[in-house]
Amino acid sequence: MQNEESIIMKKKTVSILLMAAMALSLAACGFSNSTDSSSKSSSKAESTSASSASSEAESASRAESTADGEVFDDTTVTVFAAKSLNSVMETLISEYNRTQPNVKLVGSYDSSGTLMTQIEEGASCDVFFSAAAKQMDQLEEENLLVEGTRHNIVNNQVCVVTYEGNNTEVTGLEDLNKASSIALADGSVPVGKYTREALVNAGILEKADDVSAITTQQVSEALSGVEINECANVGAVTSAVAEGSNEVGTVYYSDTYGLEDRLKVLQVVPYDLTGNVIYPAAQVVNKEANETEQAAAEDFVEFLTSDEAAAIFRNYYFDTEVE
């Protein structure tokens, strides 16, 4: 009897020990699975965090690229520029296209007054580069300029010129009456307006509230009836003198660039007589332009204020010391 009880007790003990061993084994497996799961979750979280950080870095890099040195998609920007800017603008456009090859800049050149009128009448234009503040002021008053984009770019000087080889007696404004003929832009053209301003300040013409309203006939009478060829823009004045059609004329100093062998400068008229000859530029309100065209137009105006552009302007005899 005691032997049977002893055997039964041993079996119970073995069963209890087996159950305990199984419980410990299951607990160990649970701990291992929990550890593996935790490790996997941690690894996954780290991977997600790293991926997110990488994505944010790439986004920041793209944003930086867009804000600084963005290359525009294909677009066309129309620039209305004063006739005296014709040569330098082509060089400026080439320089700009080195970093913005997809922006096609199309220049239209004429007197600032003519270009202003075209803009007022609805001509498609993205940038206006005037040879005087007057025309830009008028467009600004009419809300035809994009606010905050206007900049004074360069200064220029009026010159009295003759054709090379001519033995004229004229030395400058003071003795223009000695000329047999003069090429002179009309008063609506900036160079014509500045010439009249200088003649008024030199005491040759009578004072006027608006010097641009002084007629060519009045100028002729003040110069002892000298023959005057009234020109529509400064380019026409330059050509008339360079070709010898007129003895002398008044142009900008920058207009003599490239014509040194054909034009002789008799006088560089001081700013004291003409006042500053400021050339402002601004983006024009163009409702037909898409976002890319508008952005490229603004960018080109900003380029005109850069050191790279200033160096080019100086090469073409413009004065880059402006306020």
Rank of each mutant, 00 (worst) to 15 (best):
Q2Y: 00
T13G: 00
L17S: 11
L24R: 04
T35D: 09
S37A: 15
E46T: 09
T48G: 00
E58H: 11
S65I: 08
A67V: 05
T76Q: 10
T78K: 11
F80R: 02
A82W: 06
V88A: 08
E95R: 08
Q100M: 06
P101F: 06
P101Y: 02
V106Q: 13
G107C: 10
L115F: 00
I119M: 06
E120I: 04
G122R: 05
C125H: 09
D126K: 02
V127Q: 12
V127I: 15
F128E: 10
A131L: 09
Q138Y: 12
E140D: 12
E147F: 11
G148A: 04
T149R: 09
H151V: 02
I153N: 08
N156I: 01
E164Q: 15
E164I: 01
E169G: 15
T171R: 12
S181L: 07
A185D: 10
D186K: 05
V189T: 10
G192S: 09
S212A: 14
Q218H: 00
N233H: 01
V234M: 01
G235D: 03
A240W: 08
E243D: 10
T250H: 08
V251P: 07
T256K: 13
Y257D: 01
L263V: 02
G275V: 07
N276W: 08
Q283W: 05
F303I: 01
F313T: 07
N315D: 15
N315F: 05
E321K: 14
